[in-house]
Design a protein around this nucleic acid. Structure first.
Length: 960
RNA sequence: GCGGAAGUGGCGUAAUUGGUAGCCGCACCAGACUUAGGAUCUGGCGCCGCGAGGCGUGGGGGUUCGAGUCCCUUCUUCCGCACCA
């Protein structure tokens, strides 16, 4: 039979499903290997050809590892909470769960068609209660923990409470809110329960705090920093503004240093690591307090110092002004009556400026004088205090010291406001611009004069620490992650409120199931959709101390008994999209466990992800949050590894390749129904029009299909070149509106999954971004037919010979055995596809139909084109289904040994000819053969070689 | 501005250690078979040149017997960050 891919693929997909061929065992004598794909959000649009790229690569790798004798975990699931389903629900009233279910069915059908070897018995969905029960459980652990800097790990909040009861706040080195109190043990015990809880909230790793957040009015929710791009929401592209709100946050900053250090221990792409380093943004410097001049003191003032962060504390004698961010909280209190109008105007103006304007306009110098002064702590000089929008409220302390001699922005600022510029380095040149040099010796710097950078910095920090005016400090750009969304379609937060303080619900009540609501919109009063739910309250039984057993007993005398029975409002916001994806790889290890998020045994067995494949767009979101949660779980002793993903590969983005037709424009400027071929458009007035790429092949328009494409083109006329209509091409994002979406279903229907899998790999290196181009898929399809033909005679009957294989056949086979091994291990999938083609071309030329050769070839190709190989494997007489676990053929170098090599002979580095010479000869003998060769002599033309370079088995170079 | 990746035929790409640049496909050209070809097969296909030959890996320079690969310099494209104190 001819190669009937449709029947073959359907047959084997069904076989794999029915026999659970790829079910992984949590218990095996084989070594484990965990291959993970970033699970998709099931969108309504389904998969386009770009999506499976990474899945195909990971599937080839997973299948290859099985052949190599590994116990492979290769699961798939859905990140099924998210905005699009909810937006759709708002528009249509359709429950997001239903939309999600439908979309998942589409995804599953499309994934199945590609012949992936996923263990579907382990499927997870972040939106199913059985899954988010454990997302909520992890949230509770985060709430019940604090970060102990001394131990450099998260610890139970009980331990902190015990310390407070014994020693008060003394000796606690924690990552916490800024404004924690100091107290003795007795003072702590004297606090009532509410006061204690309020204080503890400042330490919890997940906490509730009034903070400035990214508020997106169009989406009606707050967003995390990584969800905002250039002042607009990543999803939907709506404007985002800054707003002060009480919000759930995660103290990811506690892990900043570990997140940074960990990058050096994992095998990830350098650009991605760099993005995370950038995002974490560590900078080493000092914080310095500048006392506010007495004259400025007034009743509104909450502090007598302005704290700045600087990486160049050594330049402090060059300070000639201080600048606050316009949003800085001390601005109103420090503005003198005379300056009030100017400051108010400036603050108002900068508030109006969008984030984007502010970034675009970096050259104009602007600012305003507050009228107040501060004192430089190193020389007691009076320094004027300004505000300016080049200082960002969100970074450092929102205040900077102005050193115009060393910083270009300060230099421009000083010039603009006629402030003095003081040189502090002997070799500094500040005539036309600031000079940030660290070389040279300090001048105009009192006790630092004459010192170099290193000693000077140490000296000034010592001075500041002694006088209490400052200290060495490490600052991070990364902020704590906002953890609440005012949306419906997400995990409910397992918290209720009593006297405005958050308390965890009882663990036994998990999962806290998402309630039904009448509409998926905020309430009239602006509360999140969950406020619409009927009776969204936590019912607390009559105060029974035993019900609280195991919970924190902060104040046993007053606390438990005081707990009033009754119902308390649940939290109304839900968790953000990244909650469910920050731990899902553990759930795959033990997906049905109802007692734990995964059993200790399963986690101990699978440990971590050996290979993770996904897009680089998750660099500062999912991949950072996952590392954070993993480190937290490690601190609690729940998982064994510090890093979750040992090796990570970013598959390239597949862009769209749009095709255009060119519509003729008449004298009146109206579009006609005549279309001009690409090469001729210069001679006419035309306007380009997107045309469906599926009716274009190799940029040649299928005119009949075009006429049928849309009604108004039925009578279209064409001006052709060489009898063809050539379309224009542009690379754009793949989207429906550009008619450049290529659907895998269509390609599978036409060529089969094996062809599509191999073609996607054949496109180029996995990591490379490239436009999708279906041109060339024919070549891969022809290859598979040619491969199929090796096993068949002229009449398409399966027919093999049992003869001894020839040397040439063995050579071809063993070349490909080795090549695929090498390629797969270094994730170079494109090169193995071309090697397969070479092998099949060679074997075809050799008229090879030798069973012992082809039997092995099937196994080698099986990870790339599993369906055709399964079919041939059975035709070869093997057990159905056994191919997936067959041993990968053993490479034997002997078959590749040659006795002769065609040496390229070059003269002065230019290759002139090839000479076949026995490989048994040594360098001197080779030189002898070459130099005495008649053709070489002709080239030499009597000249004597100065030198002859002989590299055995490689090259001969004659230097004249 | 800072950081990263990459520039090779008409196109996608290959060359794992400094050792014959262009493998494997697509497209194209010629031929065979054919009523026909969007099927199949054979051959050709970096550029210039009839040829001998010359030139070729973004440009310029260097190291080397030998450079797509190493070094310096410069240009271009893409990605990330961006008034970060």
């Amino acid at each position: 039979m001819d190669y009937q891919f449709k029947d073959i693929e359907q047959k084997w997909q069904q076989f794999w499903a029915e026999n659970q061929t790829f079910k992984a065992d949590n218990n095996s004598a084989k070594p484990k290997y965990y291959v993970l794909d970033m699970f998709p959000y099931p969108s309504g649009a389904g998969l386009h050809v770009g999506h499976p790229l990474g899945y195909i690569a990971s599937d080839i790798f997973a299948r290859y590892k099985r052949l190599k004798g590994f116990n492979v975990l290769h699961p798939m699931g859905y990140d099924s909470f998210g905005l699009p389903a909810e937006q759709y629900a708002i528009q249509t009233g359709q429950h997001p769960a239903i939309t999600t279910e439908t979309n998942i069915a589409t995804y599953r059908r499309q994934l199945d068609q590609l012949g992936f070897s996923f263990d579907w018995s382990r499927e997870v969905r972040t939106s199913s209660p059985g899954y988010y029960k454990w997302t909520q459980w992890i949230f509770m652990q985060l709430f019940n923990s604090w970060y102990n800097k001394a131990a450099d790990k998260a610890e139970s909040i009980d331990k902190l409470v015990a310390h407070f009861e014994q020693n008060g706040s003394a000796g606690i080195d924690a990552v916490s809110d800024e404004e924690v109190h100091s107290f003795t043990a007795d003072e702590w015990k004297a606090l009532n329960k509410e006061e204690q809880q309020a204080e503890l909230l400042k330490y919890r790793i997940t906490y509730l705090r009034e903070s400035i957040v990214n508020w997106c009015p169009a989406l009606g929710t707050v967003l995390a920093n990584d969800e905002v791009k250039d002042g607009f929401s990543e999803r939907g592209g709506y404007p985002v503004e800054q707003k002060k709100m009480r919000q759930w946050s995660m103290r990811i900053t506690a892990y900043a240093e570990r997140l940074l250090q960990g990058l050096d221990t994992i095998d990830w792409p350098e650009p991605l690591k760099e993005m995370q380093r950038n995002w974490i943004g560590k900078s080493v410097g000092a914080s310095v307090k500048f006392p506010i001049e007495k004259a400025a003191h007034n009743s509104q003032l909450t502090t007598h110092n302005i704290e700045v962060f600087t990486t160049r504390v050594d330049t402090i004698f060059g300070v000639t002004f201080l600048v606050l961010a316009p949003e800085h909280e001390l601005v109103p209190a420090l503005t003198t009556p005379a300056q009030k109008a100017e400051i108010d105007a400036y603050v108002a103006q900068s508030k109006k400026k969008s984030e984007l304007d502010r970034m675009a306009d970096t050259k104009t110098v602007s600012g305003a004088f507050t009228g107040s002064y501060v004192i430089n702590p190193v020389n007691n000089e009076k320094v004027p205090l300004y505000i300016a929008d080049y200082v960002l409220a969100g970074y450092g302390t929102g205040a900077v010291m102005g050193v115009p001699s060393g910083d270009q922005r300060d230099y421009l600022f000083a010039n603009h406001f006629n402030l003095p510029i003081v040189s502090i380095m002997d070799i500094q040149n500040i005539e036309t611009e600031a000079d940030p040099t660290k070389d040279g010796r300090y001048i105009n710097s009192d006790f630092m004069n004459g010192l170099n950078y290193k000693d000077g910095t140490a000296r000034v920090i010592a001075f500041l620490e002694e006088s209490g005016a400052g200290k060495a400090k490490v600052n991070f750009r990364m902020r704590d992650a906002i953890f609440g969304r005012q949306r419906y379609w997400g995990e409910p937060v397992p918290v209720y409120f009593k006297d405005d303080l958050p308390y965890l619900i009882d663990e036994k009540e998990l999962p806290l199931v998402l309630p039904e609501v009448d509409k998926y919109l905020p309430t009239e009063s602006g509360e999140p959709p969950l406020a619409r739910a009927k009776d969204w309250n936590y019912r607390l039984a009559q105060s029974v101390p035993s019900a609280l057993a195991g919970e924190v007993k902060v104040s046993p005398t007053e606390g438990d008994l005081e707990e009033a029975a009754g119902s308390y409002a649940y939290e109304l916001s839900t968790m953000p999209g990244w909650a469910g994806s920050s731990w899902y790889w553990y759930r795959y290890m033990d997906p049905k466990n109802e007692q734990e998020f995964a059993s200790e045994k399963a986690i101990e067995y699978w440990k971590d992800v050996d290979l993770y494949i996904g897009g680089s767009e998750h660099a500062t979101g999912h991949l950072l949050y996952s590392r954070f949660w993993n480190k937290f779980l490690k601190d609690l002793g729940l998982v064994p590894e510090e890093e979750p993903f040992k090796k990570l590969i970013n598959q390239g983005m597949i862009q769209g390749r749009s095709n255009f037709v060119y519509r003729l424009i008449d004298e009146m400027g109206r579009g006609t129904n005549t279309f001009i071929s690409r090469g001729l458009i210069k001679e006419y007035k035309t306007s380009p029009l997107h045309v469906d790429v599926n009716i274009v092949e190799n940029d040649i328009l299928n005119i009949n299909q075009f006429k049928n494409w849309r009604d108004d083109f039925k009578d279209a006329e064409f001006i052709l070149e060489n009898g063809k209509y050539v379309c224009g091409v542009e690379i754009e994002k793949m989207s429906k509106s550009k008619y450049n979406v290529v659907n895998p279903d269509d390609l599978i229907a036409r060529y089969g999954a094996d062809t599509l899998r191999m073609y996607e790999m054949f496109l180029g290196p996995l990591e490379q971004s490239k436009p999708w181009n279906t041109n060339g898929i024919e070549g891969v399809f022809k290859f598979l037919r040619k491969f199929w033909r090796l096993f068949h005679n002229e009449q398409w009957e399966f027919s093999l010979s049992n003869a001894e294989p020839t040397k040439a056949e063995l050579k071809s086979l063993h070349k490909i055995i080795r090549k695929v091994e090498e390629d797969v291990e270094r994730f170079s999938f494109n090169t193995s596809v071309s090697s397969f083609m070479i092998a099949v071309n060679e074997l075809t030329d050799l008229k090879c139909n030798n069973r012992s050769i082809l039997q092995h070839l099937v196994v080698v190709l099986a990870s790339y084109a599993p369906h055709i190989c399964e079919e041939l494997w059975v035709l070869l007489g093997n057990q159905p289904g056994s191919l997936s676990y067959a041993p990968y053929p053993k490479f034997n170098a002997e078959y590749l040994v040659e006795d002769e090599f065609a040496y390229p002979v070059s003269i002065n580095g230019k290759t002139k000819m090839n000479l076949s010479i026995s490989l048994s000869l040594d360098a001197a003998a080779i030189e002898n053969v070459v130099v005495n060769n008649a053709d070489v002599q002709k080239y030499l033309d009597g000249r004597i070689p100065q030198k002859v370079i002989v590299v055995k088995g490689r090259i001969v170079n004659i230097v004249l």
